[in-house]
Design a protein around this nucleic acid. Structure first.
Length: 422
RNA sequence: GGUGGGGUUCCGGAGCGGUCAAACGGGGCAGACUGUAAAUCUGUUGGCUAAGCCUUCCUAGGUUCGAAUCCUAGCCCCACCA
């Protein structure tokens, strides 16, 4: 019978494992954990790979524990980082934890009858230690040689930046977390991105030493796009799972724009779409790449998984309108939702109505000068409510005022500006 | 400390008394094409009450009918020599 390990392997969620014996362990219900760093108030799509890993385990009937790093977040994981990060305050970490807990609860079933997922915070047990106790109980079992050999430490020592003692000790805390979760939740498996290998093996070693038990680590590849860039950044900004940081529309669009070379891989890693369906899409792509069937499916599946059917509907409607579809028939309230992440300005009615469009567009900030607006009009790149306007002398007439409450200005294909009448 | 060279519109970089709002390249912004891809092609790129006017070529003065261009002083860069 296929185990969760087989599933992870065939979907590209498998990079390395500490021992192949893990295959036997997962033939029966086991407990697995993965950690999430509270370095921001929302998880990013990059974290979603880890979430998928946990979700696959849960689907296979295993107990899943998501650890949020209330303690480790105060230190900062050096793994995969070239520089020491600025330390977050306790309040920041506390706030971020809240957001991340909310994120996680959307993807892991906390009420599953057989194997409900659990969210724990390592601060709850770390706070009980005094420094001396921690050194005696945990530090005593680590050899500096082994710690220095970790990739995360070596990379820093080779550079000219070095690392602080605090970050150096990070691996001890994560190792202890694993031990603690073994004791309290029966976790014998930790999963994470490949950059977590060092931290994970620190934990398996500790458990072997102190409990004489074999614990397992499993890593999956860090998701990159075909140009080698780390996946999940959109114009330099990360794609977040929180709609307040990445709107439904932006989220949906990010995936719709996935390169052909990446989309099949993403479908395997980020969705539960059955493998045979993915294979069919891969074939369909050969004959009709312009249909972008795979991209549409990817965007749809992920948006629904992360933001629900309602989020998907809004993202789709927004896509239609923001790509030049007609605004007629849409109500102001719909438009406000659709244009949620479009910048907007407030103007009084008398500042808009009957005024030259050139003046209004400039005052609203669509362009820096009136000359620029005129140029834009001459180029055919100026739109009011998605209708091209080329006449320099045009004024804002009553038809342009949607319900008398707003005007949608647009420059070029995609730059919108909402003028709200107040 | 000495000697040369220089500071130009978003960047690089021409211009060296009128024809300069300033060549050319990059970038930006638009348009066409297209699969919301990549590439390509085209237009545009100081402001305005717009065939005209105004403010720009490090800063402050000056020469001249006229200065980005010449002179003086100041500030800042770069190169070489000590």
């Amino acid at each position: 019978m296929a185990t969760v390990i087989d599933t992870l392997q065939e979907r590209g969620l498998f990079e390395a494992v500490t021992s192949p014996d893990i295959g036997r362990l997962v033939e029966n219900p086991a407990a697995v954990y993965a950690g999430f760093d509270p370095s921001a108030s929302s998880l990013q799509i990059g974290n979603y790979v880890t979430i998928m890993g946990l979700a696959h385990f849960q689907r296979a009937g295993h107990k899943v524990v998501a650890l949020v790093g209330g303690a480790t977040g105060l230190i900062g994981d050096p793994s995969g980082k070239t520089n020491e990060r600025p330390m977050l305050s306790a309040e920041e970490v506390e706030q971020n934890l809240e957001g991340i807990r909310e994120n996680l609860s959307r993807f892991l079933d906390l009420n599953d009858k057989q194997a409900p997922a659990v969210i724990v915070n390592n601060h709850d047990w770390m706070k009980r230690f005094t420094f001396v106790e921690f050194l005696r109980d945990v530090g005593k079992h680590f050899r500096v040689g082994a710690m220095l050999a970790k990739e995360s430490v070596r990379a820093r020592m080779e550079g000219d930046r070095g690392m602080s003692y605090a970050e150096f000790s990070y691996q001890l805390i994560q190792a202890y977390d694993f031990l603690h979760l073994y004791d309290t939740e029966g976790c014998r498996i930790q999963i994470g991105g490949s950059d977590q290998w060092g931290n994970i093996t620190a934990g398996t070693d500790l458990i072997r030493k102190l409990r004489g038990v074999e614990a397992y680590g499993l890593t999956f590849p860090i998701l990159c796009d075909s140009t080698g860039r780390k996946f999940g950044k959109s114009e330099g900004n990360a794609v977040y799972l929180d709609r307040r940081r990445t709107s439904y529309y932006q989220f949906y669009q990010y995936f719709l724009r996935t390169a052909d070379a990446d989309v099949i891989r993403y479908l395997r890693v980020l969705t539960f779409v059955p493998m045979d369906e993915i294979a069919a899409m891969e074939e369909a792509m050969q004959s009709a790449p312009e249909e972008r069937i795979a991209q549409k499916r990817l965007a749809e599946e992920l948006t629904r998984a992360v933001h629900g059917t309602e989020g998907l509907t809004i993202a789709r409607r927004a896509s239609e309108v923001l790509f030049g579809g007609t605004l007629s028939g849409l109500r102001v309230d719909d438009l406000l939702e659709i244009f949620a992440d479009v910048p907007s300005v407030e103007k009084r009615l008398d500042e808009v109505r009957g005024r030259p469009l050139v003046d209004v567009a400039c005052a609203a900030g669509l362009c820096r000068s009136k000359g620029e607006v005129r140029r834009l009009m001459a180029d055919g790149g100026f739109y009011v409510n998605n209708q091209r306007v080329t006449e320099h002398s045009a004024t804002v007439n009553d038809d342009m005022l949607i319900e008398g409450r707003m005007v949608v200005l647009r420059s070029g294909r995609r730059h919108f500006l909402l003028v709200r009448i107040v």
